[in-house]
Design a protein around this nucleic acid. Sequence first.
DNA 1: GCATTATTTCTATAATTATGGAAATATAGA
DNA 2: TCTATATTTCCATAATTATAGAAATAATGC
Lengths: 113, 113
Amino acid sequence: MDIKSAVTQLSSIAQEARLEIFRLLVQAGIEGLPAGSIGEQLKIPPSTLSFHLKELSHAGLINSRQVSRFIYYTANYAAMNGLLAYLTENCCAGVSKCCPEATSCHPEKGNKS
Amino acid sequence: MDIKSAVTQLSSIAQEARLEIFRLLVQAGIEGLPAGSIGEQLKIPPSTLSFHLKELSHAGLINSRQVSRFIYYTANYAAMNGLLAYLTENCCAGVSKCCPEATSCHPEKGNKS
DNA sequence: GCATTATTTCTATAATTATGGAAATATAGA
DNA sequence: TCTATATTTCCATAATTATAGAAATAATGC
């Protein structure tokens, strides 16, 4: 992870609409949600939603796949975990006992609600 | 943690100079670094540095204390850990086995290098 | 009080980012 | 092919954010 990628990823979620979208997708799990469903739940007009989804996609924090006429968006858990790790990297110069734990998210198949 | 605070905190590190400053402070540990030392290491002019330090302070991701004529800045580890937790909150709707771990940084006294 | 050093505030300019209507594109079924 | 639905692109406007010089403020020692 280089600093420019980290800034791009952080910028992509440093905006209220996009952070809401991202969190919605993190909570949605690996199946994700179609764009229209996201816009409906968050009350975001189509063109604005598309702009924000593109920002998140370009940053690599979300992925998409086409299913018929719908485009399903999903959180990229690996990218998110990489970003979180980057922020705590070499905490306190890597001295022992300083940073014992690491926050991450490991979704698995079969966790539908 | 509400979404506006999260956006403010993310915005504060979604900028190359500020992310460098923040990471430098995360790695510096609980003693922190005086403003001048940060500016010198990162080659940031005083007024620009002051602007960025204020952004980070207002967001609550760093703290400061005055020591003689120097102002020492330190990473606010608790705030950072709160932000990381927020991003993974209710991952996959909170289904078990989805998000077993959580990245965080726990600096301790006596970890000087 | 004066000189020195550290940091911040003020200011103008430049650059980037967000918003949403309208039009365009893409997919699928009748 | 025609129609309906889903999503994106284009565009102009508005709003926000970054940069850094110059001046101001603050703390210390002589």
